[in-house]
Design a protein around this nucleic acid. Structure first.
Lengths: 209, 209, 209, 209
DNA sequence: TATGAATGAGATTTCATTCAT
DNA sequence: CATGAATGAAATCTCATTCAT
């Protein structure tokens, strides 16, 4: 398991001038001050460009948020799904690796994860629906695993339909308090949460690492 | 177990003119639009008074938020502690009742719970410290229970120092998605989360309801 | 010549409840922050009473200013006139004693003197006219002395019609920089300005102390 | 001696959009209503631009005042120093020309001179210190002349260390009452005050024009 | 693309003043 | 006389956004 430091920025160069710098600056600004607390001037300053130039890339502040959230959720979904696909057939292993991937993302891209949970409420209309759908896809991965595990007896939880949501809540909440360099490393956090998740769905102890 | 409906408003009449109305309106406004998204005009409108009159009660928007958060955290702490005190000596029973009380509060005062987790970041200085301390006191209740249970063998989790935080995260996250009239009742939510918590700390199945 | 410290407050108890306290608080507030910079709340705080109670004594902020200015100018006029009346017939002695009295007032009631020159511009209408008239009466004392001295040859200034204004300007400006406990005492300031005044109107040196 | 009319506006076009218009409007507004009595709306109206656009040029009302005061004091200092440098070595001639230049400035830029004396009190911190230093530099010119004249016997005043302040007070007070088109012309005012100053420091009559 | 200048709307907060008690 | 509560207007300043260049 890779315990390396994050790639630091979620959004890599997009090949379109300042676009990546703007998105990363928006991410930082929204993370630090919240969507409504951050101003377009903050974003411009962080991106090292002018206020008016932002509008050459994104038609509005809302679109900026939407794009940031879309990328964060896509990356989270993609990492989680890849991890599950490579985990074999056992529900316990799949849940363990899903949680590891999820928590790993939260640690690697803490700000992105924080923004993804806390600022989605400021989206409206179509933008919102698209992002909500992406978030729900990720949660659905966990729900399917838990349902499968409950179905084949691996998990004995009496609440297979609801447990996944609590697992996801628990994992994403890491973004609200995690600080790099703290007592717990990326790997430890992943392991702990994997165990919490398996215990929560009442997988037999033998299934625990 | 009491399954009654909430008392509806967290802040009861204080006997001081519009104070309670203002606090409740602030709670609603912050809950709906976030601290920075809600304006003092929104609060005034909700309280049925004039914008400038707000300042006869609270010297600033920040103080208003601080007071709302203080009351929400105090009530949550008080409910949780009372529940634990009446739960007997067994760690499992204490944890179960703490979770029930906590989730009960979240359901009863969903908005207050939501604001308490999501808007605390907009406080500064002393106000922030006081509210953070109140929040930490509540979490400490859970930490002590888990530590005690781990100490006497009731809980087998290898992470007794960290599990409590995940339990609290999981419980407070209910405020972000719960809707009255949904599939799960107040009592069901409390029971489910109590079981999640006991499973998470790896209490033997016999301890589960 | 009396070199005592000031009586500290220009406005003595008026026998009408809080009136004197309010006037003195207004004087301090206007002196410190200017008429527009000081609020009625500042005045109330300084007077140790409630905001609304101010309006039981004075119908508006402007009236408060007018009353403060009226009292300051009346006292200044009265002191100056008394000094001149007791000074004998010689223009030089009359001018010397007028200046001594004027500067003495400025030192004793620095704030009042400062407010009297700098805040009169914020009065309107009748209030303004009354205060301006009081101020002009004081200046007229100096003009008459200079005119008399120029008429009888005591003063040789070629500008007898204008010199008095400069003398008064010079004396009242003391209020803008004087600090109790500074290098120059009340008596020294009075003497210096008396000599400046006599020199300015070109009284022969023999007439100087 | 030049008796021409003023250049009308202290602040000439700076080549930066509306900057000069804003500074001149601020000068007028502060002169008419005082710093606290004038609103940023007044300034915007006077400058022919929008309220919010003011903040593209100056970050706050205080900065606007500071800049206005800085320019006024710089110009006054520069004019006075230039006059003295061209006046030869005799203290009497230097004092005479310094006063002429000072009073000339007051007449030419009456509003600027008025604001410079009366509104400096509303500055704080560094802004204040810088402007106070500029004002003191101008006064120091007069102090040096008087000290020199007292040293070489040209002036017989017993108060060489203090007389300069009174001279400056007297000259700057002209800004509080001068009205163009009044009885006294620019040149007459300059001459009168030059003579007052020389008399005040007790220069022998032979030295007077 | 990129920018500086511009703007109308709206933010929080303070104001002088009034009123019921 | 005295007060706390209330209010409409206006204060300074920031906002997202637009436009001419």
């Amino acid at each position: 398991m890779n315990d390396r430091s994050p790639t630091a920025t979620l959004i890599a160069d997009t090949g379109r001038g300042n676009e990546a710098a703007i998105l990363n600056a928006a991410l930082e600004a929204f993370g630090e001050k919240g969507f409504n607390g951050a101003s377009m001037r903050d974003v411009a300053r962080g991106a090292g460009t002018s206020l008016s130039n932002l509008y050459n890339y994104f038609p509005s502040k809302s679109h900026l948020l939407a794009e940031v959230l879309r990328r964060a959720n896509d990356e989270l979904y993609s990492r989680t799904r890849t991890a599950v696909e490579q985990a074999g057939d056992a529900a316990a292993a799949r849940l363990r690796d899903a949680v590891r991937a999820y928590v790993g993302f939260v640690v690697d891209f803490q700000t992105a994860a924080l923004v993804a949970i806390s600022e989605i409420r400021y989206l409206d209309g179509d933008e919102r629906e698209r992002v909500v759908a992406a978030r729900d896809s990720t949660q659905a991965i966990f729900e399917q695993i838990v349902a499968a595990g409950a179905g084949n007896g691996e998990f004995r939880t009496p609440y297979p339909a609801d447990a996944a949501r609590s697992i996801v809540s628990m994992c994403s909440a890491v973004s609200t308090w995690y600080r790099p360099g703290g007592r717990l490393s990326r790997g430890q956090l992943a392991e702990q949460h994997a165990r919490y998740a398996l215990a929560l769905v009442e997988a037999p102890l033998a299934g625990l690492a």
